[in-house]
Nucleic acid binder design. Sequence first.
DNA 1: GATACTACTATCCTAAAGGATACCGGTATC
DNA 2: GATACCGGTATCCTTTAGGATAGTAGTATC
Lengths: 131, 131
Amino acid sequence: MNNGPIIHTKEACNAAVNAVRDTLYVVNGKWKLLMLVSLMTGPKRFKELQRELESITPKVLSKELRDLELNGFIKRTVYDTTPVTVIYERTEYADSLGNVINEMREWGMKHREHIKQMSRDEAEARKAVAV
Amino acid sequence: MNNGPIIHTKEACNAAVNAVRDTLYVVNGKWKLLMLVSLMTGPKRFKELQRELESITPKVLSKELRDLELNGFIKRTVYDTTPVTVIYERTEYADSLGNVINEMREWGMKHREHIKQMSRDEAEARKAVAV
DNA sequence: GATACTACTATCCTAAAGGATACCGGTATC
DNA sequence: GATACCGGTATCCTTTAGGATAGTAGTATC
């Protein structure tokens, strides 16, 4: 596995801490990354997003969409139909987060396996004691 | 740039959303990832960590250390000196987050450049208007 | 005429994260 | 005897995230 450059020195470490801090600051919260993932399958309307991200309330969705737009991750377009249609889509800059999201997706899957394995091991241990 | 598998279908998208959600759940908050980065340069004591992560209070540091230990990301060892010495170090499982952290580090650096470039562009635009 | 859809906004509220400050016992140092 | 270091706790407080609920204007549908 490639874990990237090894961080030895205090300076490299501080630079890394700051860079990760910046990233965390931009993608903070429960929803932003999930919304960007959800928009990977194509542009979506407000209600579509709300249905896909179960349990998000319109207020929160609205705010997160505004944040993402301000940061240049999504584009909001209003179509002059009746009633108006509003669609949200990822920008090119959102694609730059692709690697981050992908690593988080992979880690999440591996972590779930890890947890499962641990509870299997625990069950084995209990059985051994019972015998 | 390799952005990983393209997420087309609704199923793949939902799986991705859930995996990213899991990851976010584990590494949530301002501090956990920064602490793991900081521990990359080697095992550290409580006060050392507090000094390196400027502005973290002992209460918060203590709680985050406990969380990280419970999740198996760090190991806490007490040495029976007088007064006691307590050291914290990353476990092997923490290494599995290497790719995630590294991508976040790289993105944070690129993002900073991106912001700088945007404000440079803006300054140019203002100058053009002024002339 | 009642109801439903869209894309939200407004108001209110709770829970959790995180910070400020003080303090503890024990040791060592000045 | 005063001060400082270590590895934290305890207590209190503020800020923020996020959720619940209701409502809006303008169709469109039954």
